[in-house]
Design a protein around this nucleic acid. Structure first.
Lengths: 202, 202
DNA sequence: TGATAGATAGTAACTAATTACTAGCTTTTG
DNA sequence: CAAAAGCTAGTAATTAGTTACTATCTATCA
């Protein structure tokens, strides 16, 4: 609950900052989101940001933390309700697309962090997130193969890479079209193809 | 031919500049490639760049031009030697991966340009490149369906998106691993999955 | 209940570094 | 010698981050 008083609490301000950065990332190149731009969007001076964060990288760290928690939680929730590994993969796919539709800045922040040359904390966090995500997917793929639902000859790593790539392809499409909402419409068709790629022959 | 004299000709300098930018993009975030960094890498002062390019965006334009020409030429050459649409898709895939292995900065530049908020000329050129690329792929897919080589029920657009996504997935993997060369090893497995996704049932 | 003190949220105006870009001059080349 | 390539030394704008200050909130105590 955000209080209605003139000042926000430290916790509230941190929360609002993170959400503002993700908002901004939907509109512009993540690497040129300046502290000034963040502050302006929040209706606060630039200096005020540094009351709550020691550095810009600390802000980006908080963003990555926010993303990690929310995304993985959603994926876990979605997959746990599934009745089979393939069903779980589809649920994860849909949940991920849903998440991106709500927060189009997220994939851009992630990719932006990964592109960094310097080894910042935020970059390492992006790294970890994708690794954890990949592990979850890998487990589903392995289980699917065991159950005979996915092709026995399937290369696990390639299956995980393609899963993420499929989503990234959609993101790129939306980047080109300049229309994030369309990603939702294209998602089912994209997953249909993915399913064909990994499913056991029937 | 690059002359061995103290000064390069205008044409040579432009060429070297473009290659330097692509080199740098392999190592750092494309958006923070500064004119100073480009000049330093070339062993020239920063001001000298502006003898040959009116602005930084003009440099990026030249880069996108370079990429467009080279990439599309390679793809065309690769597909023209193929004996069937699916074979052509594989050839295009391999050629693209080959190109990326040689110039890891290229996908990063492209994605970087697409992420831009401002409508620069370079961004529009990136746009056009991908569009043209997509058209070529779309034609192959349509032809493959006609010939019964690809699934008749296949969604053409989704097939094109997945093709590009598959490559992007590999790029992301290499970004995470910090090892561009590995992309070559993973490529065949990735295309195998793509083939399963689009191929007609046998 | 109300005054007040301590803590905290926020501001304004800096700094030092970096950015793209320019002007005027010197060196090289054909 | 003249044109072109390069250099030196700047510019103004923008960046992350700092500092000294003020506004606001909250808890305590008479």
């Amino acid at each position: 609950m955000i209080s209605r008083s003139a000042y926000l609490s430290a916790e509230e301000r941190r929360e609002v900052t993170v959400e503002t950065v993700i908002d901004l990332a939907a509109e512009q190149n993540p690497t040129d989101i300046t502290t000034g731009a963040i502050a302006k969007r929040m209706g606060v001076t630039q200096g005020a940001l540094f009351r709550h964060f020691p550095s810009k990288d600390a802000i980006l760290q908080a963003v990555m933390e926010w993303v990690s928690e929310r995304l993985l939680t959603r994926i876990d929730k979605a997959t746990s309700a599934a009745v089979s590994p393939l069903d779980a993969l589809e649920a994860a796919f849909t949940a991920h697309i849903e998440f991106i539709s709500e927060h189009p800045g997220v994939p851009r922040m992630l990719f932006g962090e990964l592109q960094r040359a310097e080894q910042t904390v935020a970059k390492r966090m992006a790294h970890t997130l994708i690794q954890r995500y990949g592990e979850r997917l890998g487990r589903l793929v392995a289980e699917g193969k065991e159950r005979g639902e996915l092709a026995a000859t399937l290369d696990d790593k390639a299956a995980v890479t393609l899963f993420i790539g499929t989503i990234q392809g959609l993101v790129m499409q939306s980047l080109i079209a300049g229309d994030v909402k369309r990603i939702r419409a294209s998602a089912p068709g994209a997953f249909e193809l993915y399913r064909r790629a990994v499913e056991a022959a029937r």
